[in-house]
Design a protein around this nucleic acid. Structure first.
Lengths: 110, 110
DNA sequence: TTGACGCGTAAGCATTTGCTGACGTATACT
DNA sequence: AGTATACGTCAGCAAATGCTTACGCGTCAA
Protein backbone atom coordinates (compact mmCIF):
# COMPACT_ATOMS: atom_id res chain seq x y z
CA UNK A 1 0.00 0.00 0.00
CA UNK A 2 1.31 3.35 -1.02
CA UNK A 3 1.56 5.93 1.71
CA UNK A 4 -1.01 8.31 0.35
CA UNK A 5 -1.48 11.24 2.65
CA UNK A 6 -5.06 11.07 3.73
CA UNK A 7 -4.97 13.99 6.08
CA UNK A 8 -7.69 16.42 5.10
CA UNK A 9 -6.56 19.96 4.48
CA UNK A 10 -7.01 22.27 7.41
CA UNK A 11 -10.63 23.24 7.98
CA UNK A 12 -9.63 26.41 9.80
CA UNK A 13 -7.67 27.61 6.79
CA UNK A 14 -10.50 26.66 4.48
CA UNK A 15 -13.01 28.81 6.34
CA UNK A 16 -10.61 31.70 6.84
CA UNK A 17 -11.49 33.26 3.48
CA UNK A 18 -14.77 35.20 3.39
CA UNK A 19 -15.58 34.05 -0.14
CA UNK A 20 -15.35 30.44 0.94
CA UNK A 21 -17.60 31.04 3.91
CA UNK A 22 -20.12 32.63 1.57
CA UNK A 23 -19.90 29.56 -0.64
CA UNK A 24 -20.61 27.31 2.30
CA UNK A 25 -23.57 29.46 3.24
CA UNK A 26 -24.88 29.13 -0.28
CA UNK A 27 -24.41 25.39 -0.32
CA UNK A 28 -25.91 24.93 3.12
CA UNK A 29 -29.12 26.27 1.67
CA UNK A 30 -29.08 24.08 -1.42
CA UNK A 31 -26.74 22.26 -3.78
CA UNK A 32 -25.35 24.43 -6.57
CA UNK A 33 -23.38 23.95 -9.75
CA UNK A 34 -19.97 25.57 -10.06
CA UNK A 35 -21.35 28.09 -12.51
CA UNK A 36 -24.23 29.01 -10.23
CA UNK A 37 -21.80 29.60 -7.40
CA UNK A 38 -19.55 31.69 -9.62
CA UNK A 39 -22.58 33.81 -10.46
CA UNK A 40 -22.58 35.10 -6.91
CA UNK A 41 -19.07 36.47 -7.07
CA UNK A 42 -17.16 39.20 -8.83
CA UNK A 43 -14.08 37.10 -9.33
CA UNK A 44 -13.35 34.94 -12.35
CA UNK A 45 -14.79 31.46 -12.65
CA UNK A 46 -11.40 29.75 -12.31
CA UNK A 47 -10.87 31.59 -9.04
CA UNK A 48 -14.17 30.21 -7.79
CA UNK A 49 -13.12 26.78 -8.98
CA UNK A 50 -9.96 27.05 -6.93
CA UNK A 51 -11.86 28.03 -3.82
CA UNK A 52 -14.18 25.08 -4.33
CA UNK A 53 -11.16 22.83 -4.56
CA UNK A 54 -9.98 24.01 -1.18
CA UNK A 55 -13.39 23.34 0.34
CA UNK A 56 -13.33 19.94 -1.29
CA UNK A 57 -9.89 19.12 0.11
CA UNK A 58 -11.03 20.19 3.55
CA UNK A 59 -13.95 17.81 3.24
CA UNK A 60 -16.45 20.61 3.65
CA UNK A 61 -18.17 19.89 0.35
CA UNK A 62 -18.49 17.04 -2.11
CA UNK A 63 -18.93 17.26 -5.85
CA UNK A 64 -21.20 15.18 -8.02
CA UNK A 65 -20.98 15.20 -11.79
CA UNK A 66 -24.27 15.73 -13.43
CA UNK A 67 -24.02 15.87 -17.19
CA UNK A 68 -21.57 18.61 -17.92
CA UNK A 69 -22.25 20.31 -14.63
CA UNK A 70 -20.63 19.64 -11.30
CA UNK A 71 -22.98 19.95 -8.44
CA UNK A 72 -21.51 20.84 -5.07
CA UNK A 73 -22.98 19.62 -1.84
CA UNK A 74 -22.36 20.88 1.65
CA UNK A 75 -20.91 18.42 4.18
CA UNK A 76 -21.42 19.77 7.69
CA UNK A 77 -19.51 17.04 9.52
CA UNK A 78 -16.10 18.61 9.06
CA UNK A 79 -17.21 21.77 10.79
CA UNK A 80 -17.26 19.79 14.01
CA UNK A 81 -13.51 20.42 14.18
CA UNK A 82 -14.27 24.08 14.66
CA UNK A 83 -17.22 23.31 16.86
CA UNK A 84 -15.15 21.14 19.16
CA UNK A 85 -12.40 23.69 19.37
CA UNK A 86 -14.85 26.39 20.30
CA UNK A 87 -16.33 24.10 22.92
CA UNK A 88 -13.12 24.58 24.92
CA UNK A 89 -14.29 28.08 25.56
CA UNK A 90 -17.89 27.38 26.41
CA UNK A 91 -17.20 28.14 30.03
CA UNK A 92 -16.51 31.75 29.09
CA UNK A 93 -20.07 32.31 28.00
CA UNK A 94 -23.23 32.04 29.90
CA UNK A 95 -25.82 30.67 27.59
CA UNK A 96 -28.26 27.81 27.60
CA UNK A 97 -25.77 25.09 26.87
CA UNK A 98 -23.47 26.34 29.57
CA UNK A 99 -26.10 26.29 32.27
CA UNK A 100 -27.25 22.94 31.03
CA UNK A 101 -23.76 21.59 31.24
CA UNK A 102 -23.42 22.67 34.83
CA UNK A 103 -26.76 21.23 35.74
CA UNK A 104 -26.06 17.92 34.13
CA UNK A 105 -22.60 17.75 35.59
CA UNK A 106 -24.00 18.22 39.07
CA UNK A 107 -26.60 15.55 38.53
CA UNK A 108 -24.00 13.11 37.25
CA UNK A 109 -21.81 13.67 40.25
CA UNK A 110 -24.55 13.06 42.78
CA UNK B 1 -13.57 63.38 12.77
CA UNK B 2 -10.77 61.56 11.10
CA UNK B 3 -11.70 58.38 9.33
CA UNK B 4 -9.60 56.07 11.39
CA UNK B 5 -10.19 52.50 10.39
CA UNK B 6 -11.46 50.84 13.50
CA UNK B 7 -12.33 47.55 11.92
CA UNK B 8 -10.72 44.75 13.90
CA UNK B 9 -8.60 42.34 11.92
CA UNK B 10 -10.38 39.21 10.80
CA UNK B 11 -10.93 36.73 13.61
CA UNK B 12 -11.19 33.82 11.18
CA UNK B 13 -7.75 34.59 9.82
CA UNK B 14 -6.37 35.00 13.31
CA UNK B 15 -7.49 31.54 14.39
CA UNK B 16 -6.48 29.88 11.15
CA UNK B 17 -2.92 29.30 12.33
CA UNK B 18 -2.45 26.35 14.68
CA UNK B 19 0.18 28.15 16.73
CA UNK B 20 -2.23 30.97 17.41
CA UNK B 21 -4.94 28.57 18.46
CA UNK B 22 -2.48 26.96 20.85
CA UNK B 23 -1.69 30.40 22.24
CA UNK B 24 -5.36 31.06 22.83
CA UNK B 25 -5.68 27.71 24.56
CA UNK B 26 -2.78 28.62 26.80
CA UNK B 27 -4.21 32.01 27.61
CA UNK B 28 -7.68 30.65 28.20
CA UNK B 29 -6.19 28.70 31.05
CA UNK B 30 -4.29 31.60 32.56
CA UNK B 31 -2.61 34.87 31.65
CA UNK B 32 0.96 34.49 30.45
CA UNK B 33 3.87 36.75 29.66
CA UNK B 34 5.23 36.86 26.12
CA UNK B 35 8.29 34.93 27.22
CA UNK B 36 6.25 32.25 28.91
CA UNK B 37 4.23 31.80 25.76
CA UNK B 38 7.36 31.64 23.63
CA UNK B 39 8.61 28.90 25.90
CA UNK B 40 5.91 26.63 24.57
CA UNK B 41 7.02 26.92 20.96
CA UNK B 42 9.94 25.94 18.82
CA UNK B 43 9.92 29.15 16.82
CA UNK B 44 11.87 32.27 17.66
CA UNK B 45 10.57 34.78 20.14
CA UNK B 46 10.00 37.47 17.50
CA UNK B 47 7.79 35.04 15.62
CA UNK B 48 5.73 34.51 18.75
CA UNK B 49 5.56 38.24 19.23
CA UNK B 50 4.17 38.62 15.71
CA UNK B 51 1.53 36.00 16.31
CA UNK B 52 0.53 37.75 19.51
CA UNK B 53 0.20 40.97 17.56
CA UNK B 54 -2.25 39.32 15.20
CA UNK B 55 -4.31 38.01 18.11
CA UNK B 56 -4.18 41.49 19.61
CA UNK B 57 -5.37 43.11 16.37
CA UNK B 58 -8.20 40.63 16.15
CA UNK B 59 -9.24 41.58 19.67
CA UNK B 60 -8.77 38.04 20.91
CA UNK B 61 -6.27 39.03 23.57
CA UNK B 62 -5.24 42.14 25.46
CA UNK B 63 -1.82 43.00 26.77
CA UNK B 64 -0.97 44.55 30.09
CA UNK B 65 2.46 45.85 30.89
CA UNK B 66 3.76 44.59 34.15
CA UNK B 67 7.24 45.81 34.87
CA UNK B 68 9.33 44.71 31.95
CA UNK B 69 6.94 41.93 31.13
CA UNK B 70 3.85 42.06 28.99
CA UNK B 71 1.13 39.89 30.26
CA UNK B 72 -1.38 38.64 27.74
CA UNK B 73 -4.99 38.04 28.62
CA UNK B 74 -7.57 36.05 26.71
CA UNK B 75 -10.67 37.92 25.53
CA UNK B 76 -13.38 35.41 24.61
CA UNK B 77 -15.91 37.92 23.29
CA UNK B 78 -14.45 38.11 19.80
CA UNK B 79 -14.89 34.40 19.32
CA UNK B 80 -18.60 35.02 19.14
CA UNK B 81 -18.06 35.94 15.51
CA UNK B 82 -17.10 32.33 14.86
CA UNK B 83 -19.75 31.09 17.21
CA UNK B 84 -22.47 33.03 15.43
CA UNK B 85 -21.31 31.89 12.03
CA UNK B 86 -21.35 28.27 13.16
CA UNK B 87 -24.82 28.76 14.55
CA UNK B 88 -26.06 28.99 10.96
CA UNK B 89 -25.37 25.30 10.70
CA UNK B 90 -26.85 24.15 13.98
CA UNK B 91 -29.72 22.49 12.20
CA UNK B 92 -27.25 20.06 10.66
CA UNK B 93 -26.32 18.54 13.99
CA UNK B 94 -28.07 16.82 16.82
CA UNK B 95 -29.51 19.25 19.27
CA UNK B 96 -27.48 20.42 22.22
CA UNK B 97 -28.80 18.18 24.90
CA UNK B 98 -28.36 15.04 22.89
CA UNK B 99 -24.80 15.90 22.07
CA UNK B 100 -24.04 16.87 25.61
CA UNK B 101 -25.33 13.61 26.93
CA UNK B 102 -23.10 11.73 24.55
CA UNK B 103 -20.11 13.76 25.59
CA UNK B 104 -20.75 13.24 29.26
CA UNK B 105 -21.33 9.56 28.73
CA UNK B 106 -17.94 9.22 27.09
CA UNK B 107 -16.23 11.07 29.90
CA UNK B 108 -17.84 8.82 32.47
CA UNK B 109 -16.55 5.75 30.69
CA UNK B 110 -12.94 6.91 30.66
C1' DT C 1 -19.50 15.75 -36.57
C1' DT C 2 -19.12 20.41 -35.58
C1' DG C 3 -19.61 23.87 -32.45
C1' DA C 4 -21.08 25.82 -28.01
C1' DC C 5 -21.17 25.04 -23.05
C1' DG C 6 -19.51 23.89 -18.25
C1' DC C 7 -15.75 23.48 -15.77
C1' DG C 8 -11.06 22.20 -14.10
C1' DT C 9 -5.98 22.89 -14.64
C1' DA C 10 -1.64 25.26 -15.90
C1' DA C 11 1.26 29.18 -15.98
C1' DG C 12 2.40 33.51 -14.48
C1' DC C 13 2.33 37.28 -11.33
C1' DA C 14 1.51 40.44 -7.23
C1' DT C 15 0.67 40.27 -2.54
C1' DT C 16 0.58 38.27 1.91
C1' DT C 17 2.31 35.23 5.41
C1' DG C 18 5.61 33.33 8.45
C1' DC C 19 9.98 33.06 9.80
C1' DT C 20 14.81 34.58 11.14
C1' DG C 21 18.73 37.44 12.89
C1' DA C 22 19.94 42.16 14.14
C1' DC C 23 18.63 45.98 16.61
C1' DG C 24 16.25 49.42 19.79
C1' DT C 25 13.94 50.52 24.03
C1' DA C 26 12.30 50.07 28.47
C1' DT C 27 12.75 48.12 33.08
C1' DA C 28 15.26 45.76 36.68
C1' DC C 29 19.49 44.41 39.11
C1' DT C 30 24.26 45.38 41.20
C1' DA D 1 26.50 54.03 35.93
C1' DG D 2 26.77 49.68 33.70
C1' DT D 3 24.84 45.37 32.57
C1' DA D 4 21.30 41.96 32.00
C1' DT D 5 16.43 40.97 31.01
C1' DA D 6 11.93 41.18 28.53
C1' DC D 7 10.06 42.28 24.56
C1' DG D 8 8.72 44.73 20.26
C1' DT D 9 10.08 46.22 15.60
C1' DC D 10 12.80 46.15 11.33
C1' DA D 11 14.79 44.34 7.21
C1' DG D 12 15.09 40.50 4.36
C1' DC D 13 13.76 36.21 2.41
C1' DA D 14 11.22 31.79 1.09
C1' DA D 15 6.88 29.97 0.62
C1' DA D 16 2.01 30.22 0.34
C1' DT D 17 -2.19 32.57 -1.28
C1' DG D 18 -5.24 34.58 -4.49
C1' DC D 19 -6.05 36.13 -8.69
C1' DT D 20 -5.92 36.32 -13.93
C1' DT D 21 -5.67 34.62 -18.84
C1' DA D 22 -5.00 30.72 -21.81
C1' DC D 23 -6.00 26.23 -22.59
C1' DG D 24 -7.83 21.34 -22.54
C1' DC D 25 -11.37 18.00 -21.93
C1' DG D 26 -15.79 16.00 -21.59
C1' DT D 27 -20.84 16.78 -22.61
C1' DC D 28 -24.82 18.39 -25.03
C1' DA D 29 -27.25 20.19 -29.15
C1' DA D 30 -27.89 20.91 -34.19
Amino acid sequence: MVATANIPADVFSAISHPARRTMLDLLAHADHSAGAIAGHFEMSRPAVSQHLRILLDAGLVTEQRHGRERRYHFVPEQLSVVRDWLAHYERFWDDHLQRLQKTLAKKKKS
